[in-house]
Computed example of a mutant assay.
Amino acid sequence: MSSVCNIIVAMAAPTLKPVTTRSALLTLLLGAEVARLSTRELVAGASIVGFAEPTVRVALSRMAAAGDVVRDADGGYRLSDRLVARQRRQEEAAHPSLRDWDGTWELVAVTTAGRTASERADLRATLSELRLAELREGLWTRPANLDLTWPGVVAEVCERFTGAAPAADPAGLAARLWDLDAWAAAARRLLDATATDDPVLRFTACATSGRHLLADPVLPAALLPADWPGDALRASHVAYKQWVVDMRRSLTDAAG
């Protein structure tokens, strides 16, 4: 078994760190229904968790200087290309493209040698983002229940197959490849946090759940433990994001 399981475990144990102005603004932009928010909209949204306008303006200037956001000529802000890619991954995590599962698995074998350490690391990250896990060195797999868009690099350096489960006990294999109990326990903690009346805790839980959903392997129900909280966390995350959007609009309108 490779170190990928350890990576998944680490990703599956989110902690609710205090909300910073930067994280609040990124959460607003990542969850926005449009590509760009005005400074007024960002000030209104950040006020949900208690950040004052001067603090927001300073944070936006620093974020623009750091390349997190791009300021347009009208004074609005949009995410940098790097964070747009993150936004897309989070949207896909919240709305995975599923297909009926017939029991088959995706198998991806790395067949090209001589790549640099950086190239190998990038490929591992790409395969992990596709929710594959490494069965053994150079051989990645997952149930074929997702409509995956395969990046060009996978075709360049790998061979892909679809076939029977690479083990006699598919559910047992899934449990070995992904620490499902750890992911589920963390998801339930996030669901509890989003059910509180504390606006800062709820906001933080929403931001954290977006990252946590990236580590959900999105397995077929037949391979999951009972009472799997994946769908509940996705629904909670989407509902809270919409509430933030509605609150931001309301506060923006009230501010004139």
Results as ranks from 00 to 15, higher is better:
residue 241 K to G: 01
residue 116 T to I: 14
residue 179 D to M: 02
residue 131 R to A: 13
residue 93 A to M: 02
residue 20 T to R: 14
residue 50 G to C: 07
residue 49 V to C: 04
residue 192 D to K: 10
residue 179 D to L: 10
residue 192 D to A: 13
residue 65 A to L: 15
residue 104 T to G: 08
residue 215 A to V: 01
residue 72 D to S: 15
residue 178 W to D: 13
residue 170 P to L: 11
residue 126 T to N: 03
residue 11 M to W: 12
residue 48 I to G: 07
residue 256 G to F: 09
residue 198 D to Y: 01
residue 220 P to E: 00
residue 227 D to W: 12
residue 158 C to M: 06
residue 31 G to D: 02
residue 236 S to M: 08
residue 21 T to D: 02
residue 83 L to T: 00
residue 137 E to C: 04
residue 248 R to C: 13
residue 118 S to T: 02
residue 149 T to G: 13
residue 51 F to V: 06
residue 42 L to S: 01
residue 76 G to V: 05
residue 29 L to D: 07
residue 246 D to A: 14
residue 43 V to E: 10
residue 89 R to N: 07
residue 245 V to N: 09
residue 53 E to F: 05
residue 249 R to Q: 10
residue 92 E to S: 13
residue 15 T to C: 06
residue 134 E to K: 11
residue 119 E to M: 14
residue 184 A to L: 03
residue 58 V to D: 09
residue 54 P to D: 08
residue 195 A to M: 02
residue 68 D to Q: 09
residue 48 I to T: 10
residue 85 A to S: 05
residue 85 A to Y: 01
residue 226 A to W: 03
residue 70 V to A: 00
residue 225 P to V: 10
residue 26 L to H: 06
residue 55 T to S: 12
residue 71 R to E: 15
residue 180 L to N: 06
residue 232 A to T: 12
residue 7 I to V: 15
residue 82 R to G: 07
residue 38 S to R: 14
residue 211 R to V: 06
residue 11 M to C: 14
residue 237 H to W: 00
residue 189 R to K: 07
residue 167 A to Q: 12
residue 251 L to A: 00
residue 246 D to M: 11
residue 186 A to P: 12
residue 16 L to N: 07
residue 245 V to T: 10
residue 190 L to C: 07
residue 159 E to F: 03
residue 11 M to I: 03
residue 45 G to T: 00
residue 129 E to I: 06
residue 37 L to D: 03
residue 224 L to G: 09
residue 47 S to H: 09
residue 12 A to P: 12
residue 12 A to T: 10
residue 120 R to A: 14
residue 162 T to L: 02
residue 171 A to V: 06
residue 87 Q to G: 08
residue 67 G to T: 05
residue 232 A to M: 03
residue 254 A to M: 11
residue 64 A to Q: 09
residue 139 L to T: 08
residue 83 L to A: 00
residue 173 L to M: 12
residue 117 A to E: 11
residue 193 A to E: 04
residue 167 A to R: 13
residue 219 L to S: 00
residue 237 H to L: 06
residue 207 A to D: 00
residue 93 A to S: 12
residue 180 L to I: 02
residue 21 T to N: 08
residue 129 E to T: 11
residue 204 T to G: 15
residue 14 P to S: 07
residue 76 G to D: 12
residue 122 D to V: 09
residue 32 A to Y: 00
residue 191 L to A: 04
residue 41 E to L: 11
residue 78 R to Q: 13
residue 237 H to F: 02
residue 27 T to P: 04
residue 22 R to Y: 04
residue 223 L to C: 02
residue 7 I to W: 12
residue 158 C to S: 06
residue 116 T to V: 11
residue 224 L to Y: 02
residue 107 L to K: 12
residue 216 D to T: 10
residue 115 R to Y: 02
residue 42 L to D: 11
residue 67 G to N: 05
residue 253 D to F: 14
residue 10 A to V: 06
residue 94 A to M: 03
residue 177 L to M: 14
residue 245 V to W: 00
residue 208 T to D: 07
residue 79 L to S: 03
residue 33 E to W: 05
residue 214 L to W: 11
residue 151 P to A: 04
residue 138 G to W: 09
residue 17 K to F: 03
residue 138 G to I: 06
residue 72 D to R: 01
residue 140 W to M: 08
residue 171 A to G: 10
residue 47 S to T: 06
residue 150 W to S: 00
residue 20 T to V: 08
residue 206 C to L: 05
residue 115 R to Q: 14
residue 80 S to L: 01
residue 43 V to K: 07
residue 76 G to M: 05
residue 28 L to A: 09
residue 111 T to F: 03
residue 166 P to R: 15
residue 213 L to H: 01
